[in-house]
Design a protein around this nucleic acid. Structure first.
Lengths: 238, 238
DNA sequence: ACCTGAACACCGTTCAAGT
DNA sequence: ACCTGAACACCGTTCAAGT
């Protein structure tokens, strides 16, 4: 785990020949954009070994600066994690909204036309797919212990946006008579618990024990099970 | 947070009089049952500040021994966490089985008599209640990063037992025609994801954001929503 | 204004030496 | 057989001093 190699992604401005006359800039004393580089290094560390694998010192090492340098840009490790989480949350939100755009309100393949429950399903599916593909990044935005959620304005913002989106979609579904329960809040919390729990079971390594090999396929299956469970069925009383 | 108090639970084997005739035991060189005391100290630390708050050194401090002493009983911090997780998992299982015993197979209050789906619900409810009341202990048995799940025989054993119990109950429910889906495995995984997700949302501090004040009440509500969703309804096709 | 490098108080872990 | 206490290699964080 000890890596003294400098990351290849850091831009070294030409070759820092040391002593020779035509030597340009032997590694500038002032870093170009250390803040950004540190976030990228931390994101990489998260991807490699999960949030616990992020250390300020290692990020500094990869950025090619001294152990104390990061503290000029982030008051604490938590603040760095915060910035990383904001980045991850932004990507998460972007992907979900993109996926939803591909399942537009009036999808002729869906029945009925303007199918909000179908969009709710797309939302959940995009959520699960991203979480399956980016488990460590999902972990950092979900678990609070890496930073102070309440202080993380960006994360909260993007997250609240997604919650609102789900809420509106669910309200539409209810307005169109697609739901059997009128307690939308509970339906939404249950839905969230389902996808959150599935994503977390993946992160926490429970799938081998449960015999889940095809995580994405199972994700879709349990989502459908849930959607059918909340849908109003012809012949069902209420 | 630094406690140098010795635990009162340790049995001191008689008095090793040191210098003065009536001198009361200046701490025996050999600890009575250090292994047990370390686990208890760690359990306490988990309860106080979550699994991350457990350090071998602090456990040693609370046990009144030197920093290296624990390593005579546990090869690593992970091994200590493992023992702690086994203890927590044992309690978890005991509580769930106790709760199920109170909702016996033939509960006259339930309809139909011998109501396996009702018992499945009781199972989920007991799961959720324990997780709500013991969030830090739930965390240590659910998250894999504190120890090697596959090497943790005791934890896996107790957990597998609970999984089997849920599986059998669900199979009975299906046999009695209480379920609308025949894919029991998916129903069980969905159910697990739901309760696991709800428990984890609690641990991860998401409930304030979701406006969930009464965690236990909401837990019961979403569980009922799920149970209704998987139940066969008169008039529903299949 | 930004970075270095030494320092401090913590960890987990090892190991000779003590009892 | 079990424990001590010093050591080592790590952390996060601070701070004078350098550029």
């Amino acid at each position: 785990m000890r890596s003294s190699a400098k990351p290849p992604s850091v831009k070294l401005p030409a070759k820092p020949l040391r002593r020779t006359a035509r030597a340009p800039a032997p590694k500038p004393y002032h870093h170009g954009d250390l803040r950004r580089v540190l976030i990228d290094a931390a994101l990489q560390l998260v991807g490699e070994g999960g949030p616990d694998a992020v250390s300020v010192r290692e990020a500094a090492r990869r950025a090619g600066v001294s152990p104390g340098a990061p503290f000029r840009h982030f008051p604490s490790r938590d603040a760095l994690m915060n910035a990383v989480a904001e980045e991850a949350q932004r990507r998460f939100r972007a992907e979900i909204e993109a996926a939803l755009a591909e399942a537009p309100a009036n999808n002729p393949a869906n029945n009925p036309p303007n199918n909000p429950l179908g969009r709710f399903r797309s939302l959940g599916l995009a959520y699960l797919r991203w979480a399956m593909k980016n488990p460590t990044h999902f972990e950092i935005i979900s678990s609070r212990r890496f930073f102070d959620h309440d202080k993380a304005a960006g994360v909260s913002q993007d997250n609240a946006e997604l919650i609102d989106l789900a809420e509106r979609t669910l309200a539409e579904a209810f307005a169109q008579g697609q739901l059997r329960s009128a307690d939308l809040k509970q339906v939404q919390i249950a839905g969230r618990a389902l996808v959150y729990g599935f994503a977390r079971m993946n992160i926490d390594g429970h799938f081998p024990r449960w015999g889940v090999a095809d995580a994405e396929g199972t994700a879709e299956a349990i989502l459908d099970l849930f959607i059918e469970g909340i849908a109003k069925v012809p012949g069902r009383s209420a």
